[in-house]
């Protein structure tokens, strides 16, 4: 028992928690951006994440890693765009539930296609040498990916906030998320804004997936649903629709989960690592019903 809680152990737990949090944050941003604009829970986002992992396997088999990664990200962006055009655009004026069901349908389609293509067998993610290199941090041997993830997440988030706050399309995004109808009347090309949102969300999920599956190398058709669900919880946690909220929520969840998984196995609590995420969420929601940074909705009568 005493040996478990050495400083090295704590550092390594914290580091991998931050890394998992970063990966979740990249997915959570996709959820929260789409929700901010369309008020749609994009259930297919987690499965897109899984598809990136599978594509990584197939593309890495033919191409060298440095070429494969950008190609995978590009294909994912195309896929995100196609999903939006095919499954969500026709339902823009339908009730909210329809679009959500369509998202569940897409999630089914992606999972079942993945089962069909892989034959239902778990696939092994290729080892990316650079990411798997081991380095020492405070005497703790750590994989490079663990250090790289939070740094990369920070860079991407800074870029994203720059994009949203200082470019024309970013301004359009903010306008659309404030008021869909009015921004359409003001001449904003709604469809272009929505497509851009999906493409950005998919690209971030692709980066997240490449990092994520380096630490969890077996991919099954359902391996996207849990991270997807957790990222969604992270987005709700921070107040769905708010990007900083999603990022902070994701880091919190990532760290908490790794801590619970790292507790001594004699305590028998590791089965609760997923449940704890949800318990935390429910506690937050009962205190603050719209999440940490969520806008307080005012009902007009």
């Amino acid at each position: 028992m005493e040996q478990l809680f050495t400083p090295e152990y704590i550092v390594s737990i914290l580091l991998s928690g931050i890394s998992l949090g970063g990966q979740l944050a990249l997915i959570a941003i996709g959820y929260t951006m789409v929700y901010g604009i369309l008020r749609l829970i994009n259930f297919a986002h987690g499965d897109l994440f899984m598809v990136v992992g599978l594509m990584g396997i197939y593309v890495c088999a033919v191409l060298p890693t440095y070429a494969a990664i950008p190609i995978v990200i590009l294909i994912t962006m195309g896929l995100g765009f196609a999903i939006e055009r095919a499954a969500y655009k026709p339902l823009r004026s339908a009730p909210r539930m329809s679009a959500m069901i369509s998202a569940i349908g897409v999630s089914y389609l992606l999972q079942n296609t993945a089962t069909y293509v892989t034959g239902g067998q778990p696939m092994t993610y290729p080892t990316i040498e650079t990411l798997n290199r081991t380095i020492n941090i405070m005497g703790t041997p750590t994989k490079l990916v663990v250090i790289l993830t939070p740094a990369l997440v920070l860079v991407l988030i800074v870029l994203l906030t720059q994009l949203i706050n200082h470019t024309k399309i970013g301004m359009a995004m903010r306008a659309v998320s404030k008021d869909f109808e009015t921004s359409r009347l003001m001449g904003i090309k709604i469809n272009r804004v929505i497509s851009t949102t999906f493409v950005i969300g998919s690209a971030l999920a692709a980066v997240g997936a490449i990092l994520y599956f380096t630490t969890y190398p077996a991919i099954t058709p359902t391996s996207g649903s849990m991270p997807g669900l957790k990222a969604f919880v992270a987005a709700v946690f921070g107040g769905i629709g708010s990007i900083p909220g999603a990022v902070i929520g994701a880091f919190l969840i990532g760290i908490c989960e790794t801590i619970i998984k790292g507790l001594p196995s004699s305590w028998n609590v590791s089965v609760f690592s997923d449940a704890f995420t949800f318990a935390l969420l429910i506690i937050i929601l009962t205190c603050k019903p719209t999440g940490l940074f969520g806008e307080k909705a005012t009902d007009k009568v």
Binding site: Y35, I41, L229, F232, V233, V236, I240, V271, F272, D274, A275, T277, F278, A279, L281, I282, L285, P289, T290, G291
Partner: peptide, 16 residues
């Protein structure tokens, strides 16, 4: 949606 995710969360907790 907050109700949806909270009930979903409870279902997952019960399962655990």
């Amino acid at each position: 949606d907050y109700l949806a995710i909270a009930t979903l969360g409870f279902a997952e907790i019960i399962r655990a």
